[in-house]
């Protein structure tokens, strides 16, 4: 594998977006790019990552390779990333380490790190990324982040309901309750403020607040978030990158007894 990002912060943002959710991950590299999935220790949150060749300045993968890494270690190396530097990932045919080369031609500087790869036994799950959903919402990731931060302070359970009137996020704590209603809008001046809802039926689902606080860490990937909900299935929270691919979080719901 030889894969070069023209801006090293792209890879840093991707890794930082889920490094607190899961401890380790297998990156599966092939001609069609880098794909990964990992489940958190409590098996409630599934992270999926897709980095297609279009995200790279140059991308070459001669034979399919799996790269297992501890995310805490990789995140440490990526602290060196900045918008002036490119980052090339190299893995040899017999992979036992990942080489990261940061280059800042303007500053006549380069940095080289090596990361030991780890053997991770993890099942790949059959996830249909085009899964049909009852409700799809596209909204500002900034707005979503703020709503999650504000409401999750009040309760460890977070409810999402969508009707024709809009999307309602609500919490019911022991001492306080809160509700945020967002209605579809079109901001011609700033398209990232738009909120659109497409739905075939209403939904009303509850999730554990702590996972939503993990998910919003990915908001730096995109100023938009796509939400997909269906009755009694995991919700999908997806951040798509400008050049294709992105990071998705499948969150299993809570159910009422």
């Amino acid at each position: 594998l030889e894969a070069k990002f023209d801006d090293s912060t792209i890879f840093k943002k991707i890794i930082d977006s889920f490094k607190d959710s899961v401890t380790q991950i297998n990156f599966v590299c092939s001609e069609s790019g880098i794909e990964a999935q990992a489940i958190d220790d409590s098996r409630v949150l599934l992270v999926t990552v897709s980095i297609p060749p279009s995200c790279f300045e140059s991308y070459r993968c001669d034979r399919p390779t799996t790269i297992g890494v501890y995310l805490a270690s990789l995140a440490k190396l990526l602290k060196s990333a900045n918008t002036n530097s490119s980052l090339t990932l190299y893995v040899a045919d017999k992979p036992d380490e990942l080489l990261l080369l940061f280059e800042e031609p303007k500053n006549q500087k380069s940095m080289e790190y090596k990361l030991k790869l780890v053997d991770i036994t993890a099942d790949m799950l059959e996830v249909d990324s085009d899964m049909k959903s009852d409700v799809t919402v596209e909204m500002s990731s900034v707005e979503f982040t703020k709503t999650v931060r504000d409401l999750t302070q009040l309760s460890d359970s977070f409810t999402v309901s969508v009707t024709k009137d809009g999307i309602v996020f609500s919490v019911q704590g022991d001492t306080a309750q809160g509700k945020v209603l967002l209605q579809p809008r079109e901001d011609l001046a700033d398209e990232s403020n738009n909120l659109s809802i497409s739905m075939s039926k209403t939904i009303d689902l509850s999730f554990a607040s702590k996972y939503l606080l993990d998910i919003i860490k990915a908001a730096s990937i995109s100023n938009k978030i796509f939400l997909k909900f269906s009755d009694d299935t995991p919700a999908l929270f997806e951040f798509k990158m400008e050049k294709g691919g992105g990071v998705g979080f499948y969150l299993a719901p809570k159910y009422d007894d």
């Binding site: 489940i39 409590s42 409630v44 949150l45 599934l46 099942d123 359970s157 995991p234 299993a252 159910y255």
Partner: peptide
Amino acid sequence: KSNQRSIGDFFTVK
């Protein structure tokens, strides 16, 4: 009282 579902309840291993 709410109960937490697991990802494994919904997705099968490839």
